[in-house]
Amino acid sequence: MNEIRTLGKSGSKLLSKLSAINKTTFTVEDAQYVLPEKSYDALRQLLSRLVRSGWLIRLKGGKYLMVPLEAESPDMWSEDSFVLASASVSGSSTVPARAHVSNPNFKIQYAEYAISYWSALNYYGYTEQIPRTVFVSAPKRETSTSQAILDVPYRLVFLSPKKFFGLAIVWQDNKPVQITDKEKTIIDCLDRPRLCGGIVEAAKGLSEGFKDGIDFSKLSSYARQIGNATVFKRLGFLAESLELPVETWLDDWQKSISKGYSLLDPTQPKQGQYNARWHLIINVLEPNLISKKGSK
């Protein structure tokens, strides 16, 4: 027999107090603070009951996400997938974030995560593909790299601190969520094409980003900051294949490539023509890339 889906007196008091202080994501210690009369064991039992009845979602690291009290029924409520990722991962690192926020008057505590790679590419409309998995990057290694919340799979991608930059704030369901900005999203996809569906998806991102007016000065700066010479190889080759007007940047990108040959697409076999200009093995048919080009 299913447990009756009710908050109960203690559950109602707990969630009401947490909601009043805007603690939609909380820990057992937070719960102890608002219900000091409860023993630790009794509190854990209460939290377990609220999880079973659907009013709480257990996240990793001993954290819980509260279903809004105004929800008609917990099983009729669904949170935005980016917001869930934010609730699950935020605060997982102590490495300072370097964010670019368009509104200088907006103040927020920057957490150490960012919606990224294929998910960010889709958010900006740079690909028509809708990845089922939500990609989240963070600069601290945890014990797990994947999980599912409300049946949505998440992949946590760990970065070295020097690669964790280029962040922006977007609003989902009236909640701030951290995401890689447009230029960093494209550079990330060129750095690790496996995490955006392959180099063809990265080519779409570069083409659509150009039409969207991305800042190529920032793009070039990000490519240098990420510290992977192969990014310049892919960036230069794709920009020329897509016939983007970036002549002023090509010499600088050329000087930044390494001597060895890299795969254009690491998701494909190591075979194809050797491109001496960009030191790439072209293991993807160029028509597939050129078909992504467009004019501004």
Rank of each mutant, 00 (worst) to 15 (best):
A276I: 08
G260M: 05
W249F: 15
L264N: 02
Y261I: 11
P269K: 04
D265K: 00
D265W: 01
D251W: 08
K259F: 12
H279M: 11
D251Y: 07
K270H: 14
L280C: 11
S258H: 09
S256W: 03
Y261W: 10
Q268Y: 05
G272H: 08
S262Y: 15
Q254A: 10
K259C: 02
L264P: 00
Y261L: 10
K255S: 15
R277S: 10
K270G: 04
L263S: 06
G260Q: 12
A276Q: 12
Q271L: 11
K259T: 12
P266A: 06
L280A: 10
K270P: 04
Y261Q: 05
H279N: 15
Q268A: 11
N275T: 10
S262G: 06
D251P: 06
S258T: 12
R277V: 14
Q268E: 12
S256H: 02
K270C: 06
G260N: 11
Q271I: 13
Q273S: 13
L250Q: 07
P266Y: 06
W253V: 01
L280E: 03
L250Y: 11
A276G: 00
Q273C: 03
L280G: 02
A276W: 06
I281F: 05
S258Q: 12
D265P: 01
Q254G: 02
P269N: 04
Y274N: 08
K259E: 15
Q254H: 09
R277Q: 14
P266R: 07
I281G: 00
K255F: 09
A276P: 06
L263T: 00
L250H: 05
W249N: 08
R277D: 13
S262L: 02
N275H: 14
N275I: 11
G260S: 13
I257P: 00
W253N: 00
W278V: 11
W249T: 03
N275P: 07
G260Y: 11
P269R: 04
L280T: 07
D251E: 15
W253Y: 07
K270V: 10
P266Q: 09
Q254L: 13
Q271G: 09
G272D: 10
